[in-house]
Design a protein around this nucleic acid. Structure first.
Lengths: 233, 233
DNA sequence: CGGTACGATAGAACAACGTTCGATACGATG
DNA sequence: CATCGTATCGAACGTTGTTCTATCGTACCG
């Protein structure tokens, strides 16, 4: 696997890829300009080859996305495994979830594809296992354990999807910063009728300029507090 | 608005639409065959008109999705407003979230578009307001209130996305039931090495044939239990 | 050494999609 | 009756995922 034949010297070069390079360039494209930037033609150009060649490595675009996702999840899994085990199972889960979320925040496109197909995404399944293994240290039923992990994944994915939606593109160009983008929304909210939207007015200042990681950590801690209660700790 | 001009009798009929009918047929298309089934051409055919006519009502496909989402969210909002107010603010939030989730489970495509653009999705904003208003009855800081609502929305969206991913299509055709689909995954999990995946083996029986709503309710209750703790109840 | 099988690459074509353009019909207004 | 804004539509454009078919290069085998 991953054999690298010598390129022919004369005439038109024939590109020679490898699973590693295909996935690597795919991830690079996704990182640089988001999901819509990953097209077979753009990817082929980066690889210096033809469009159809990519189909030798992946069956279709869905599989490409799944494999690219799993590719970066390999790194995340390594980070999670590096985490020092502590005394408290729930604190360990918290650290894992934060590591996972950190990766998703850095790569907003991950949110949509993560955990979609554990058949192909074997690293995602391993992360699922790592998250769940901590619950074995708690006094819970199997069903409660199952739900506990689903809940944490739900919080990660939910927050990620909420935050990962592309600002119409202007923020990616750098033409307008994230703060300004948030401020615009906040301003629109401030102009709503106060008697019709008392809650929106209550929290608009918190929304304006808020930190995504703070928001996620709060949601996660609520879930973990509930779990701690359930485990009788 | 929504004027209905008479159709010409002779020659080729000219279709006459309305915002209501466009959104209605769009939702019907989404319900029947999922997000990929909603194309401008399919929609035009259902409306008995031309493709370009739709662009008189919506600027582009994103706006069509947003408006279609908000269209059904109108119904959800009505359901939520019909909910009888109880004594406990958190119980009321729970009922609202369940109503919301119920709608998303019935329409899996909702998960991906819900709450994407509160500019266009005014009903979604109103649901956000309704969910948040309950927190005003609790002893919390503005930031805590903000995070409390984000957390609940995160749980809803996270669970919805997790459950909303299309089974390769065979389940939509009805060729293979949901139980069998789950069972296939469960079987693959059972064949994993038990020492490498102890947690997966622990919960595979729970996963097999599990109920989505149960799973969501558990996640929601964990979050709400945490919130109750935070509010000092 | 020549032939053959197979791993790997690639150009061209296809169907489907979102979107735009220009023309055209229709009712109301003057 | 002319005019204007509303509403409609067929045809075309560019881009996308995907398939077809032909080819190259290397390893193997008689």
């Amino acid at each position: 696997m991953a054999r690298q034949p010598a390129r022919s010297v004369g005439g038109r070069r024939r590109a020679s890829h490898s699973m590693e390079s295909v996935l690597g360039e795919a991830v690079a494209l996704l990182d640089e300009a988001g999901a819509p930037a990953l097209t077979f033609r753009a990817l082929a150009q980066r690889l210096g080859g033809g469009v159809a060649s990519i189909y030798w490595y992946v069956a279709n675009k869905d599989e490409l996305l799944d494999l690219a996702t799993d590719h970066v999840m390999g790194g995340v899994l390594a980070d999670i495994e590096k985490l020092p085990p502590g005394e408290d199972a729930i604190d360990d889960r918290r650290a894992m979830a934060l590591t996972l979320f950190d990766a998703v925040v850095r790569r907003p496109w991950l949110g949509a594809y993560f955990m979609r197909n554990t058949d192909v995404q074997s690293n995602s399944l391993r992360i699922y296992e790592m998250l769940g293994r901590q619950t074995l240290r708690l006094d819970l039923s199997a069903r409660q354990r199952f739900h506990a992990v689903s809940a944490v994944i739900g919080v990660v994915v939910g927050s990620a999807v909420d935050m990962g939606q592309e600002p119409p593109q202007e923020i990616l160009d750098g033409a307008v910063g994230r703060d300004e983008f948030l401020g615009r929304f906040a301003q629109a909210w401030r102009e709503l009728a106060p008697d019709e939207f008392p809650f929106v007015h209550e929290i608009v200042d918190e929304f304006d300029g808020h930190d995504d990681v703070d928001q996620f950590r709060s949601a996660l801690d609520l879930t973990l507090a509930g779990l701690r209660l359930q485990a009788g700790l």
